[in-house]
Computed example of a mutant assay.
Amino acid sequence: MSERKPYPSDLSDARWALIEPTLTAWRQARLDRRPTGQPASVELREVFNAILYVNRTGIAWKYLPHDFPPHGTVYAYYAAWRDEGIFAQLNYDLAGLARVKEGRKAEPTACIIDTQSVKTSTNVPLTSQGVDAGKKIVGRKRGIVTDTLGIILAATVTAASLSDNAIGMRLLDQVKTTYPTISKTWVDTGFKNAAIEHGARLGIDVEVVSRNTETRGFHVVKRRWVVERSLGWLMLHRRLSRDYENLPTSSQAMIHIAAINNLTKRITDETTPTWRGTY
């Protein structure tokens, strides 16, 4: 790793050790397909640190500090890893390790599904946006699946106008393909009969968990609080505070990157330095 002053978003040696084998294997596969076979000079760890910096701080790519590799190079790696499913693969591998660390089996049997509508920035194409009439938000809608520990198992991003039912069916397909062991999921009342029936066809029992109408104001809802907490964790990454991405697939990749960031810390028992307690 090159010598420079570290940023709070940088990977520690222990966290890099969890990611490095996948990225090194990816690079070797690309080298094997190149006529010259000459390795690139850029350090993969520095590229990933730069991606984490963008994800955590919310800056535009061209505003990357100059002690990182050039922003064009970093984006080229990011786009390749996005399109080739490397971020999703890392999310999957690390989720299994985090579950085992918590004394669970690597493959979950139950999950929770929820959606979140977010506003978009001015650069996002109108064709990929929509209006969530219920929440009165113009933008995109994120759908995520977590296990009972709050670990993200699957994610998708659509126009905000798409119904929770349609997103739920998409997520059920995705999570059942990735985790065939899933047989139970909990959802909120936005998911209707179509999602429940689709889950039944996949062998997944979809249970709707309603709020207690007799309790006024905020209160913890059984099972659903886990996925809502995970959505809150995502919002700590400023690139996800609203949707800045031109492509929905980029938005989905940013969710996976935030999950990778959290999972590596969870596995290595590390935390992100904050201003609290420093005065």
Rank of each mutant, 00 (worst) to 15 (best):
Y7K: 11
S9L: 00
D10S: 05
D10E: 14
L11P: 05
A14V: 07
R15N: 11
R15F: 11
R15L: 11
A17K: 15
E20I: 08
P21A: 01
T22Y: 11
L23V: 10
T24A: 13
T24N: 13
R30K: 14
R33K: 12
R33L: 13
Q38E: 15
V47T: 11
N49L: 06
V54S: 15
K62Y: 15
K62T: 13
Y63Q: 12
L64V: 12
G72M: 08
Y75G: 01
A76P: 03
Y77F: 13
Y78M: 11
A80E: 10
R82Q: 15
D83A: 01
G85Y: 02
G85S: 08
Q89I: 01
D93A: 03
L94V: 00
L97A: 04
L97C: 05
A98S: 11
V100K: 07
K101L: 10
K101W: 03
K101T: 00
K105L: 14
A106F: 01
E107N: 08
A110M: 02
A110G: 06
I113S: 02
S117R: 10
K119L: 01
S121Y: 02
N123I: 13
Q129C: 06
K136A: 00
R140Q: 09
D147G: 08
D147S: 05
G150Q: 01
V157E: 03
T158G: 02
A159I: 08
L162P: 02
D164Y: 04
I167A: 03
Y179H: 12
T181L: 06
K184W: 04
T189N: 11
N193R: 06
A195T: 11
I196Y: 04
I196V: 05
G199E: 02
I204A: 00
D205Y: 13
V206W: 09
R211F: 00
T215A: 03
F218Y: 07
V221L: 09
R223F: 15
R223L: 10
W225H: 08
R229G: 12
S230Q: 12
L240P: 12
R242S: 02
E245R: 07
N246D: 05
L247M: 07
T249F: 10
S251L: 03
H256D: 14
A258Y: 00
A259C: 15
K265H: 08
R266N: 13
I267Y: 06
E270G: 01
T272L: 14
T274N: 07
T278S: 14
Y279S: 14
